[in-house]
Nucleic acid binder design. Structure first.
Lengths: 253, 253
DNA sequence: CGAGACATTGAGTGCGTTCAACCACTGTGG
DNA sequence: CCACAGTGGTTGAACGCACTCAATGTCTCG
């Protein structure tokens, strides 16, 4: 029952050493607008330095570090987090292939959070300096930046609502449903997938103890709502999961 | 001991009907860059429709509403919040004179949160349409927008850390210290001020019950750390407050 | 004056925590 | 090859923080 999954690359996870198709990349529009505006195909090469690889546990960047690059995840998984002076850490997001990191602090010139690879992860490093030169001249790129930052704010707000107004069970249900949507968006199965993050990371992200994550997942499994074996998750009853996620726990505001 | 403060306008709070000096406005740079670039003083008048007034409890805008205006607070207090479909509300920020609201959703064309006046509040309404026309031509304005959105993201991250990793006592201490800084920035006393929000709003914002807010403030008062009479707060011992706020409650990550 | 919002305080409870032990599996070094 | 330490996951027991429920007081507003 407690068999740990072998370390071979999972089917749904996507191998880190297989470069993703640019057309399916989350930054495709951004990259193409660089390309098309200039008509100079070598420009993309100069701005985008490809194939930087980070091993499991390595930092892409840390809080306060000067912003030199932004990163597009080609394959792998990254978690972002903020921390207090005394070392408390809050995981604010999990990121998979196609996502763009490092733009949320574009104004302050310092990364406002840290990013760490959860497994072997390959990225496109994009020179921030060059990028900003282009962005200054091209409103379309500016607009892409706004789009990304808006999305970041929206996500933060969702997480705030989760941390402030939901109990542990609801948090887990919401988390699973969001993961499901995320996988669906990447054309993976929305009901069966492999988690790229540990129980500890999930607990930290959701503001509950690691043990509580285990217990609640076990309860969901006992109730037949999900099947969970280590990092392999199968959602059997989306409807009940949604009920748990949305049911008001306290009636009044 | 439970005397409620009379409803006369407080000294530190600033009367809502007295327009703030534009030079001290948080959006001064933004407004001036509109002004100076064009050299047309009537332009500002056309973009900024002045002196819209909202009464206590009135909505400036709600979630999902189409973005037509952004708002600069001239005087008064506003709370912003997000909510779930089933009516759960999470207050994400309190805003005073000089602050700019409504830019966090510039990309999606829909406000991503709601804004509600906590007392009589006068604002400058800024036409979003006109504003974007100008922003499209002027990189300096674009940069101001990025600056504001970056600040929004930074604030969200701070609140996430607070909700995810601190107990009720720490939350209150952190909240009071942040308020203190905020007042200092507006050239008001950092150790004695009037709260513009209710205990209920504070509790909601910090993710604790209203009663817990009362109890902890009472405890702080018993310990001589603060003096609290209704909405009038005096910080007597900033050092101990900072100890409470930063002291690690759990040692390991 | 009564209704309602806001604030305070007490009593009791429960959810999620901490502490602890244990299992399964991985990687390293003798 | 096996022993060992280390990581990640699971489960049980007990505690305590913050919650809910309830009552009461103070002030505002219509």
């Amino acid at each position: 029952m407690l068999k740990h999954a072998p370390k071979t690359t999972s089917v749904t996870g996507g191998a880190a050493d297989v470069p993703v198709d640019c057309k399916n990349c989350g930054a495709y529009q951004l990259c193409m607008s660089l390309w098309l505006k200039t008509g100079d195909s070598s420009l993309l090469e100069r701005v985008v330095k490809k194939k930087q690889v980070f091993k499991r546990g390595e930092l892409l960047y840390h809080m306060g570090q000067q912003v030199d690059y932004m990163y597009v995840i080609r394959g792998g998984s990254v978690k972002t987090s903020v921390s207090t002076e005394d070392g408390q850490v809050q995981v604010i997001g999990f990121h998979e292939e196609g996502e763009l990191l490092g733009l949320n602090a574009i104004e302050s010139r310092q990364y406002s959070c840290e990013a760490r690879a959860m497994r072997v992860t390959s990225v496109c490093e994009v020179s921030m300096e060059r990028f900003e030169e282009l962005a200054g001249r091209d409103p379309a790129i500016q607009h892409e930046v706004l789009k990304i930052m808006s999305a970041e704010i929206r996500l933060s707000h969702e997480l705030l609502l989760l941390l402030g107004k939901h109990n542990a069970e609801e948090r887990l249900a919401i988390f699973l449903l969001r993961l499901s949507q995320q996988f669906a968006r990447r054309n993976c199965s929305p009901t069966e997938f492999n988690l790229s993050m540990s129980r500890s990371d999930i607990g930290n992200h959701l503001g509950v103890a690691e043990e509580t994550v285990c217990r609640i997942l076990a309860r969901f499994q006992d109730d037949g709502i999900i099947s969970s074996e280590c990092r392999h998750i199968k959602l059997n009853d989306m409807k009940r999961l949604q009920q748990i996620a949305h049911l008001r726990p306290i009636e009044q505001t």
